[in-house]
């Protein structure tokens, strides 16, 4: 399956996701779940086909990582929806997954089978997958925080369930982010002999991790008064850092010569 298939499969995925989100809005949980999952499976099928066709994991270019992000966002949205019925999470997952699928259609990239020798490592796949998964989960944690902030301004009281949910999103998202960081470090050691070289992408990943670490540690000892609100702003800041790490680093003056520019 080559990239030309994407022109047909991406609209199909997007259509399924949009229908799934609409069903969720109309509180029809079953069709909402299955439509979303169907969209995810179509994208997953395309990823698998592309993998076979390219004879390498499709994780090298920006466009390829967008595929995974769509896959994980919609998939995670559907799974959590099935368990917890967070409509907003399903809508968010479907919406963002669609946006990235559409970017890939509108802005196609040169594709190539080439996988530079440094990328041919058993760490490549866990490295990229844990990052993409963590990006999906941490983005959801930021959205959940925004919703909680609105609830606090509206009723003055945080939603206790949502509070626990945000905590577990940040914990699992941060755990995945750390796994991405650590597999990257072990891999860099294997390939080049250095764990960490303050490459701009690495530096920004460190900033992102630090931001979410602040949230976890802040929650151990909530500061008084406006403290809960302050803590809830941290995942939002973290999302900004995350987007800079993923998409923005290439444009920074400090990023000249980064090994992570693709």
């Amino acid at each position: 399956m080559s990239w030309s298939w994407h022109d047909y499969l991406a609209p199909l995925s997007v259509a399924l996701w949009v229908l799934g989100a609409l069903m969720a809005i109309k509180t029809k949980p079953r069709p909402a779940f299955w439509l979303t999952v169907a969209g995810t499976l179509v994208t997953g099928l395309f990823i698998a086909g592309l993998w076979l066709r390219l004879e390498r994991p499709p994780m090298r270019t920006m466009g390829e990582t967008r595929l995974w992000y769509s896959f994980f966002l919609s998939g995670a949205g559907a799974l959590v929806y099935a368990r917890r019925r967070f409509t907003w999470l399903l809508i968010f997952g479907c919406l963002l997954a669609s946006v990235f699928a559409i970017i890939n259609v509108v802005k196609p990239e040169l594709h190539s089978k080439a996988l530079m020798p440094a990328l041919q490592s058993p760490f490549f796949i866990p490295h990229v997958i844990s990052y993409m998964l963590s990006y999906a989960v941490l983005a959801a944690s930021a959205l959940a925080s925004a919703i909680q902030l609105r609830k606090i301004s509206a009723s003055g009281e945080p939603d206790k369930n949502l509070d626990d949910f945000i905590d577990s999103l940040v914990r699992s998202g941060l755990g995945l982010l750390m796994l991405g960081l650590l597999t990257g470090a072990i891999w860099a050691k294997q390939a080049w002999g250095h764990y960490w070289s303050w490459d701009p992408k690495e530096t920004w990943a460190m900033v992102t991790a630090a931001t979410f670490l602040i949230y976890i540690h802040l929650r151990r000892a909530p500061p008084r008064g406006a403290g809960r609100k302050l803590a809830l702003a941290v995942p939002l800041l973290g999302l900004v850092m995350l987007m800079i790490t993923w998409l923005g680093v290439s444009y920074l003056p400090a990023a000249m010569g980064s090994v992570h520019i693709y």
């Binding site: 303050w198 670490l213 602040i214 151990r220 400090a254």
Partner: peptide
Amino acid sequence: TSAPLSVALISAMGLVSLLMGLTPQIV
């Protein structure tokens, strides 16, 4: 060993990294 100190330390580390991510460094 308190959480407030850990928050301050992690923030400081994050701030130094941020500075490194924004400005060219000799490394």
